[in-house]
Write a protein that binds this DNA or RNA. Structure first.
Lengths: 245, 245
DNA sequence: CGGGTATTTGACGACTGTCAACGCCAGTGG
DNA sequence: CCACTGGCGTTGACAGTCGTCAAATACCCG
């Protein structure tokens, strides 16, 4: 599918059991999953994982790195739909769907674990609640999409960018990827990608980032963002941090 | 929940079997469904079916009329997410979800059939492929949401409005609700609702509709729209009619 | 060090929102 | 039957956000 994708390898060096966030297959399915899972892939930064419209043969759990889900527009531009972080499950398409509804590419170098959709469907037969689990993952993705629609349709550029950053901050925090002081977050997205997620041009994204910096909300450096006051950023973004689990 | 909702009645006057588009419960589940289904509700135009954040006790199949799914914004405005047409299944939220991710209200007078979420979950245990069916409904909704995100983020007001109309045209056509000549479609949405769906203000929606009329794409009258050339409208909207089934 | 990618900035214009006012129409009550 | 009333649609003037075009700068990788 993409020359940047390295050949499949068995997951021996990265066994499923070590991935606390592996969403799809809970402990009870592990033996089953081990036998059905096909391979682990390593993706170079910018490599395509799957393309919009392609036959959905595989679904993936992200082990490491960031992915971006996107949708192409006929004018050549691209709308970012969602950033996938380690532990997220992407690319699942139930049977009557004949093509991926979106594309996915690696923002950073990334490692994914691939499942055949066919195997997942078979596993849903054997394990009733796996179906509910996948249904739940879909529902969470739906809620995120609805939130994005609200943002794209109603919020200003400043609020949309603040929202993307605030949400990523909390998703990273839940994974322990925010530093001790809670002000510095890794941020491998380019300004162009941030604009794709927020429906803005790269130029305007840059201007808004400057304004956010001047207003003291955040300082976007190379590959990371400093946030002096997360609460204030969330307030601007109208983002409600989820209840700590 | 809403004073405009009429008291529940049994479905005797509107048996499930007559609804060809009833998506959730295929023929094989009908006996089961009849016993579990609680009631049929009639909604007045503008009545709320369920509210964002409320405990998701019920899910609904729309029998007649139009619904609009929406999400409230903190500034008091509202983002339209999707129009539900007869046969559509709305409001399903899997177990870990504690509140509806969006609200729904009746655009026109409407009749829905209500299922307890609890019963649906139980039915998914007994009927394996019902789970897949619901998963598939979710996936179609996801694809629609992704398409909307692309529109809200990348398309002009003219294209977005054209898209909503073109999509509704084809969904109505599939239900046989377009007249013989294929140019006149029912359209109960107010311009304000159309603006909510497209992320526009009512005023600008009106201006764009005028421009679409001047350019010969459509004539929006009271409760209906005339489309002289559907193909040209779809081209403007960048809408691909689904393969005729 | 060189070349490509990413960021930054300015000037300008188009698109869309805001505010305000008016007209149209259907339903209501006298 | 008619006046009233509220919702919806329409239009104008104006402002602000955001996109486009262009160019310069900064940064990374080889």
């Amino acid at each position: 599918m993409n020359e940047m994708r390295s050949p499949p390898t068995r997951c021996n060096d990265c066994p499923i059991r070590e991935k606390a966030l592996f969403q799809v297959v809970a402990d009870r399915y592990l033996a089953d999953a081990e036998s059905r899972r096909t391979a682990q892939y390593s993706l170079a930064a910018r490599a395509t994982l799957y393309q919009e419209g392609a036959p959905p043969t595989m679904a993936y759990t992200l082990f490491s790195g960031w992915l971006m889900l996107y949708r192409n527009h006929s004018d050549g531009s691209r709308q970012g739909l969602r950033i996938a972080l380690p532990g997220d499950f992407v690319g699942y398409m139930p049977v009557p769907i004949s093509g991926y509804s979106h594309g996915a590419f690696a923002v950073t170098q990334a490692v994914v674990c691939a499942f055949r959709q066919h195997d997942l469907h078979a596993m849903m037969e054997d394990h009733v609640d796996l179906a509910r689990h996948i249904t739940s993952i879909q529902a969470h993705y739906i809620a995120a999409c609805e939130t994005s629609m609200l943002g794209l349709g109603r919020k200003s550029a400043k609020e949309r960018i603040a929202y993307v950053v605030a949400e990523l901050y909390h998703r990273l925090a839940a994974r322990g990827e925010i530093d001790r002081e809670g002000q510095l977050m890794p941020f491998p997205l380019t300004q162009e990608m941030l604009g794709e997620l927020t429906g803005l041009t790269p130029v305007h994204t840059n201007r808004v980032l400057r304004k956010l910096r001047l207003d003291g909300f955040m300082t976007a450096e190379r590959h990371r963002i400093h946030i002096p006051d997360v609460g204030r950023l969330c307030e601007l973004a109208d983002y409600e941090p989820p209840e700590a689990a």
